[in-house]
Nucleic acid binder design. Sequence first.
RNA 1: GGAGAGGUGUCCGAGUCGGCCGAAGGAGCUCGCCUGCUAAGCGAGUAUACGGGCUUAAACCUGUAUCGAGAGUUCAAAUCUCUCCCUCUCCGCCA
Length: 423
Amino acid sequence: MLDLKLLQREPASVAKALALRGSSIDVAEFTALDERRRALLVESESLKGERNAVSAEVAVLKRSGGDASSRIERMGTVNARIKVLDQELELVQAEQNAWMLAVPNMPHASVPEGKDENDNPVLHAWGEPPAFSFTPREHWELGEALNGLDFDRGAKLAGSRFVVMRHWAARLERALVNFFLDIHTREHGYTEMLTPLMVNRETMTGTGQLPKFADDLFKLDGWDYFLIPTAEVPLTNLHSGEILEESMLPLAYTAQTPCFRSEAGSYGKDTKGLIRMHQFTKVEMVRFAHPDRSYEDLELMRVHAETLLQRLELPYRVITLCTGDMGFASAKTYDLEVWLPGQNKYREISSCSNCEDFQARRANLRFRRAGGGKPEYLHTLNGSGLAVGRALVAVLENGQRADGTVVIPKALRPYMDGLEVIG
RNA sequence: GGAGAGGUGUCCGAGUCGGCCGAAGGAGCUCGCCUGCUAAGCGAGUAUACGGGCUUAAACCUGUAUCGAGAGUUCAAAUCUCUCCCUCUCCGCCA
């Protein structure tokens, strides 16, 4: 959610910033709503002030045995008017709130301008795509041939975009999870968390999934619970409503969770393989940063994600999302794209974003500077570290050999009982 | 699922027959003093949100709201009523 005061003071510059990301707001509509809200508020509050004053007089009169009936009678009409005003006010406030919740975050000044994913500049690349003396296969061929990925049974049990992982594949998934978590907790200073996998409406609103993107979520029938699409949701909402000490910042959390996504609107995209599933595992990093230093935190988090790919010896590149390609809540995002020889292209495996105070305002995440002062919104960041299913894909496709076997990256072997080759 | 207890400010904790409660008291924190040693003493201050006034802005002044959430009764509710949520205890059930 954007700052109400900023919208009141400089609606034109807000609109300009949002236009960069291809989003338009109706400034006139906002201004009209806000002015209406304030007019109602002024009248209602002044009448309530009168009522409070008269009530005090009534109290005095009653205690001294005086007659307060005329004042009480007069308050009857005042109360009727207050009731009408407050009902109207509630409607206007609800409308304004809905309006505010539907507006995306503004891009940071350092974000390159652009229209869509074709305008995302490459920040840097690491590693060389391996050269094969044969035509590299896609991961689902390898996975099925090696009897590890069972898409047929996944479909039988649940439907399309589900998989059953067997034997080495299940083990590899767990190895990746443990490897990622170990590095984040031992070397990067993150605290490992285990959170609910379903959360309530308020939590989903705090990070921005609701109210606008309900179609992307799985909701439980008969319960006001939603399956989390990423651990970002429970982790970022962890301290909602709290006021943290400045000395506690930055807080760094990591969690591995299944992620559930309806993938509505992605029909026909990535229908084969593990790339786009209704359920996938992801290790997430979330940071609660000091607003003065949140962009340093973003660079740090990006490096944390990159470290994992380097240890796995997987070639990748980093792109900066342009203004037109960023997510709803983000002010700046880096995507890590890993090289997939089977597809012969780079595919997203991590997304690291600084949401600044956009989520903090929704979820009421604040801190107080040392030495007192008013609480301020902190900045929230989130990044994949990494998407486990896609990491498994990358390991298979990059490690494959002509005979159909797959070499496991050295860093992962301790997590696989020393196994060096699959197949 | 059954029975009971409870949800108050950063924290702990008082709120009697509804009014003088934004809320006693304590801790913590901030500032000042004192002391001269890692502690103590003294004094003052210390909620948030949204409006209005003033202002370049802030400070400041002022109003309203907030004592789990919502609704109701009343001139007036932390205090009464109802619904819901959450926590705790006991029983049942269960991994």
